[in-house]
């Protein structure tokens, strides 16, 4: 680099450019800042729009007598509004999630403990597998559940097959939530336990896990409440029965499953009923996750 330009010239050119471009720079900055505001507004619109529709179209559906307590009916040309209720789907959803939880919660939590405490090569490999599985498409859990439960175990289309699909879906989520909750426990707790002469396992069970329990429990609740709304993992395997069923080997319906079926029917009354189911699902998820957060926040305060 050979310098032929003097400092004074640089200064003059700089001042000139700075003034010449100031208006444009300020203008662009203002426009882009406005666009950022627009983006955040745009991001909030769907939430507001969906909730508005849920309330407007869903409330009339769920206040209909027998919505929660009767079985669905097929509308006919004589009675196009005869849609019945969702009692079977309600029971089915509860059954599916309970069986899924029985399988996924113990394994997920124990695995999370392992991920949080182990420094082995296997643990770091497992961490990568877990992070990758969290991103796996949920429809694949349906295919997997079909292959394992319906075909190989000869159970057939059933609640338990749906539960298996959901369980595989939430396992990595539960493990991650547990791992984070345990890692958030100050290391001094563990050190204090060890210093008092307790074995590592005793320290984990008696000190670390209780301290992390709030985080673990709220993680479980959040993951399961979201799993209730999942359609794809159960879609291929649950069977879709029009009767109340809760036995693991029975075919059943579930709330998101029934929504998916009803909205594709040709009867406007059945399509409209999906707003009621949607309101129930979203309301439940919101209330449960809000309550879980509130509870976790309060617990935290009490502990301090």
């Amino acid at each position: 680099m050979t310098v032929t330009i003097k400092d004074a010239e640089i200064r003059e050119h700089l001042r000139e450019r700075s003034v010449a471009t100031l208006r444009r720079r300020t203008y662009i900055s203002g426009v882009m800042t406005a666009l950022c505001w627009l983006a955040i507004t745009f991001a909030a619109v769907p939430l507001v729009a969906v909730i508005y529709q849920l309330l407007r179209r869903g409330i009339p559906v769920i206040v209909k007598s027998g919505f929660f307590t009767t079985l669905p009916q097929q509308p006919t040309i004589f009675d196009a509004n005869n849609t019945g209720g969702v009692s079977n789907a309600l029971v089915g959803s509860l059954a599916v999630i309970v069986y899924a939880a029985l399988f996924a919660v113990p394994i997920g939590v124990l695995m999370g403990v392992y991920l949080a405490e182990s420094t082995s090569k296997f643990a770091s490999l497992l961490r990568i597998i877990t992070a990758t599985m969290v991103g796996a498409p949920s429809i694949l859990m349906g295919l997997f559940a079909f292959e394992v439960v319906v075909q190989q175990m000869h159970v057939g289309f059933s609640i338990i097959a749906g539960s298996f699909g959901l369980a595989v879906l939430v396992l990595p989520v539960l493990a991650t939530a547990t791992e984070i909750a345990i890692r958030n426990v100050p290391s001094t707790y563990r050190e204090a336990g060890l210093a008092l002469g307790a074995k590592p396992s005793t320290t984990s069970l008696k000190i670390v896990l209780p301290a992390a329990s709030t985080g673990i429990v709220s993680g479980i609740i959040l993951a399961l409440s979201r799993a209730v709304g999942e359609t794809a993992p159960i879609l291929l395997v649950i069977g879709g029965a029009y009767a109340i069923a809760w036995h693991p080997n029975q075919a059943a319906s579930a709330l998101p499953f029934q929504m998916f079926q009803d909205v594709q029917s040709n009867y406007p009354s059945l399509q409209n009923e999906t707003w009621g189911i949607a309101l129930v699902l979203v309301g439940a998820v919101f209330i449960i996750s809000f309550a879980a957060r509130l509870w976790a926040a309060r617990k935290k305060k009490v502990q301090r």
């Binding site: 680099m1 330009i5 640089i10 050119h13 700089l14 700075s18």
Partner: peptide
Amino acid sequence: GLRFNGVKKKSVLDAAAES
């Protein structure tokens, strides 16, 4: 900083960098 202030000329940028 010069670029932020709208300076684009390579010769000026080079000279300013060296200075």
